[in-house]
Design a protein around this nucleic acid. Structure first.
Length: 864
RNA sequence: GCGGACGUGGUGGAACUGGUAGACACACAGGACUUAAAAUCCUGAGGGGGCGACCCCGUGCGGGUUCGAGUCCCGCCGUCCGCACCA
């Protein structure tokens, strides 16, 4: 009897896999009839080191990949590096290391860490997005999109991150702060490159419906983000021209049915008309007050309604004699709709608050169901629900929906407006004023304007000789790089110095992985047609909007540029968002975060190992570098092995929920591995092999075979349903049972060998190293990683007899055994039930009214 | 405010499609082995009552449907996540 030693076994089996190239994806021709499975985990940013918190999604993806492979699929399971981005530049500014050097060193370290986990990855397809072999193709994609009119330049207000000195997309601004730096974002106006994601807004929205293997939560977040609103644009005629000569003011509304309740127009503070009037003292005061609020969402949210009467009047579209005042108001957003609204206070809480504050009229026009027109009144609560229109001339008596249609029809007839749809989604700003990103292949010429870099001049490579001694973009300061001749007229011109948002890099990598290492073009149509869509994508929910929406957009754009065949445009058929690994946090007496390996726990008291001072035990939080509550993967694997880590993060907690990493849990996983090994190792030498046929057996051997086949079914169902914690529980259960069998009669030995061989294969996706060791010990042929997943025998997996609980009036009073599938009549059931003491007692003095028999399930006797 | 997820022992959680609630694990307690400890193995355990075979209560709260509800319906309470003066 030996102990299982992961330090010896794990490297040995990883070498065996590498030697036999087990995890290389086959070409379609090699794969033959085998179905394909593309399993992908969101690729990591190479920040330096892998910790346990990073491992869960790789472990989950690997379970799926290995399981699919064992079930006969041709599996593509690649890995790469999301390698452009700010931290490399920050490191360069701080430590003087070149971003390229820093990034490649990190990649080497992280690759080594990841390989320790024993993932079934086809490393031959590895790439880093910072390699010219990758980003050169991205430049071709950029130019293809440009040609297809999906790229534009706009002067626009941007979110400027003063710390990172770069522009952020709206999605990258969280609570008014930069998503990476956490610094409050400022507003600046710059000319920027954009991808026209809004051109696909409708398709991206309706496509969500087809993503039935995505979490509802993510689908809802995407729909919410796209934010489609249907309504109408209304042109309000000014009764005297505005200062900029405008004669109309456009307004977007979703509620044209409430037009007869209108009492004012309100413009955004930075609406062109408002700005023209800024020289008036009262308008200037209003703008100053509004600006004071700052940009933080919180401040805007809590700010009271504020407005100023601009002194302009407009005419109501349905009534030439009706004039309404035009105000500017702080709650109107310039970035949404037309940057102007009409206020219909009875039907909108904001409009009502505003009207009450400034004494504007409030006229109810929607009668809620059951309300009386004579008495219905609006005080401080607007009525926003559906109802019947009244006080509204030709709309009277219509339902809200019908009135919306009727109002739009009339507006169109009068030429004062039309049905319209607006979107919350805005175009994707992709310009970044950074060095460490994909250069945008464009040249600015004084006479020709902005022109694309011609094909023969691609790729535009990043220069290596750059300095990071001051903030801002080193490409701008580089002495020669940006100076080029205009490809159109030959005059001296300048390169674009902006680089692409790193979300562009990760928006098409799923196609590049599928295409192999092509040199002449970004992606291969045939390969993409074969492998895509990704069958199972695994990653964090933090990418629910940003990355996943961009990838869906780029997939459609590449399709429409005829670079790929992907009719539906959806790159990820199945998505799973895994929970995080959490850990307790520790703070020292001095208030500094401490890492778990600096802390000793004795009987619930925590002490800093180095100083002996007591340590405060804080909340359990997601493992993160900043809180230092991380466990390094390499040292953990050195102590316990990768399988312990893999088993731990897949046990207990459902995959979509967080799992708390604890020492006790580590010990538990370690004990289980030893227990499993000793169970396998207990099989006497000379026993049959794990795949030898067992034949017809009875007694103890048969009982064990039944347990074995039940275990196959239970674990298969668990893995198939992405319920790894349940699969793990069934493995535990099976080990507990098979340990009890130690007979050495030939039929029992055969059943044990079968059971242990099944066990090795069932745990292979979870703990591949241990599984190989077990498989070898049992004398299984080849590698377990290449073995076929066991099938269960329906007869063996089902029980011959079932235990039927007997209820009396819904409460369990006894049980009886019956043959499976036996059709008990109510009379039989009652007679047999009465033989049970507990049932007989419960029925004492009662008359049986009805007996319910659910075959193989339950018997319920209703008595009174 | 809108949208989504969820609420089960000391803890993480299980329970197929309405059919024995608490599988499995962690922590705990008792025991075996040992000079002792570690490791390992065995046993116990939702709460309450009874000497006892047993009985009562129990899946956030209140109702309902049903022979039967953790599961379905209605109404609350609470937690977490996302979005938000979006017209």
């Amino acid at each position: 009897m030996t102990r299982y030693n992961p330090k010896e076994s794990e490297p040995k089996w990883r070498a065996a896999w590498a030697e036999r190239d087990v995890f290389r994806a086959l070409t379609p021709a090699q794969a033959g009839d085998a179905p394909k499975a593309y399993v992908l985990e969101m690729f990591p940013y190479p920040s330096g080191k892998i910790h346990i918190g990073h491992t869960r999604n790789y472990a989950m993806g690997d379970v799926v990949a290995r399981f699919k492979r064992m079930r006969g699929f041709n599996v593509l399971h690649p890995m790469g590096w999301d390698a452009f981005g700010m931290p490399a530049e920050n490191a360069a500014m701080k430590g003087g290391v070149h971003p390229k050097t820093w990034t490649h060193a990190n990649i080497a370290a992280m690759r080594a860490d990841l390989q320790l986990l024993g993932l079934s990855i086809d490393w031959s397809r590895e790439f880093a997005t910072c390699d010219p072999e990758y980003y050169a193709h991205q430049q071709k994609i950029f130019l293809a999109l440009w040609k297809k009119d999906l790229v534009c330049r706009k002067r626009s207000k941007v979110n400027w991150d003063p710390v990172d000195q770069t522009v952020l997309a709206n999605e990258q601004v969280i609570d008014g702060k930069g998503w990476r730096s956490g610094a409050p974002v400022e507003t600046r106006e710059l000319e920027q490159w954009f991808f026209k994601i809004t051109a696909y807004a409708d398709d991206l929205l309706s496509g969500i419906e087809t993503l039935n293997r995505w979490p509802d939560k993510v689908r809802a977040m995407q729909a919410n983000w796209i934010g489609k609103s249907r309504g109408a644009t209304i042109r309000w005629a000014l009764t005297s021209p505005a200062p900029d000569g405008a004669t109309d003011i456009d307004v977007f509304t979703t509620r044209p049915d409430t037009l007869y309740g209108a009492s004012f127009l309100a413009l955004a503070p930075d609406h062109p008309i408002t700005r023209r009037l800024a020289d008036r003292p009262e308008v200037a005061a209003f703008l100053a007050e509004t600006a004071k609020l700052g940009t933080s969402e919180e401040a805007i949210e809590k700010a009271p309604k504020l407005g100023v009467d601009l002194g302009l009047k407009v005419r109501h579209p349905f009534d030439p004699n009706w004039e309404l005042p035009v105000w500017a108001a702080n709650f109107v957003l310039s970035t949404y709709g037309a940057g102007a609204i009409f206020g219909s206070p009875a039907g909108d809480q904001r409009d009502l608050d505003f009207s009450r504050k400034y004494g504007l009229p409030v006229k109810p026009v929607v009668l809620p169901p059951g309300a009386d027109a004579a008495t219905h009144a609006i005080e401080t609560e607007a009525y926003v629900g559906p109802g019947v229109i009244y006080n509204s001339d030709f709309l009277d008596g219509l339902s809200t929906d019908d009135a919306i249609a009727a109002a739009i029809a009339k507006l169109e007839k009068l030429g004062r407006g039309e049905g319209a749809t607006t979107w919350r989604l805005r175009d994707w700003g992709v310009s970044r004023q950074r060095y460490w990103g994909c250069p945008i292949p464009a040249i600015r010429c004084g006479s020709c304007g902005v022109v694309p870099v011609p094909d023969e001049q691609l790729p535009v490579l990043l220069p290596d000789d750059v300095a990071f001694d001051q903030p801002g973009n080193p490409l701008v300061r580089h002495p020669t790089w940006k100076h080029v001749d205009c490809p159109a007229c030959g005059a001296a011109a300048e390169r674009e110095t902006d680089t692409l948002d790193t979300f562009v890099d990760s928006s098409w990598y799923q196609f590049r992985f599928a295409s192999g290492n092509l040199t002449d073009r970004p992606v291969d149509k045939d390969q993409v047609r074969y492998w895509l869509p990704v069958d199972q994508y695994v990653g964090g929910v933090e990418h629910a909007v940003l990355h996943l929406l961009y990838a869906r957009f780029i997939s459609r754009a590449l399709r429409d540029c005829d670079l790929i065949d992907l009719p539906a445009g959806e790159p990820f058929a199945g998505l799973f968002t895994q929970g995080m690994v959490t850990h307790e946090t520790y703070t020292s007496a001095a208030g500094a975060w401490l890492s778990p390996d600096e802390v000793e726990l004795n009987d619930g008291a925590a002490v800093e190992t180095a100083t002996g001072e007591s340590v405060e035990r804080g909340h359990v939080e997601k493992m993160s570098k900043s809180k230092r509550n991380v466990v390094a993967l390499d040292s953990f694997v050195a102590d316990y092995g990768a399988d312990v880590a893999r088993w731990f993060v897949l046990s207990d907690s459902p995959p979509e929920r967080d799992v708390e990493w604890t020492d006790a849990g580590v010990e538990g996983a370690w004990r289980f591995i030893q227990r499993l090994w000793s169970t396998v190792d207990a099989l006497p030498d000379g026993a049959p092999g794990p795949l030898d046929p067992v034949g017809d057996v009875g007694g103890e051997a048969l009982a064990l075979r039944k347990l074995t086949h039940k275990a196959i079914k239970a674990v298969t169902d668990g893995v198939d349903g992405f319920r790894f914690n349940v699969a793990v529980a069934h493995v535990h259960e099976f080990v507990n049972e098979i340990r009890k069998v130690d007979g050495t009669a030939p039929d029992v030995l055969a059943a044990r060998a079968e059971g242990l061989g099944v066990l090795a294969r069932l745990v292979a996706p979870f703990m591949p190293h241990l599984a190989e060791e077990c498989w070898a010990r049992l004398g299984g042929p080849g590698l377990v990683s290449e073995a076929r997943w066991p099938d269960w025998d329906r007869e063996l997996a089902a029980d011959d007899t079932v235990v039927l609980p007997i209820q009396v009036n819904g409460k369990k009073r006894g049980e009886l055994r019956a043959a499976r599938g036996a059709a008990l009549t109510a009379e039989d059931a009652e007679a047999r039930a009465r033989a049970d003491d507990g049932v007989a007692r419960a029925l004492e003095g009662l008359t049986v009214r009805k007996v319910i028999v659910v075959p193989d399930r339950i018997i319920n006797i209703v008595a009174g």
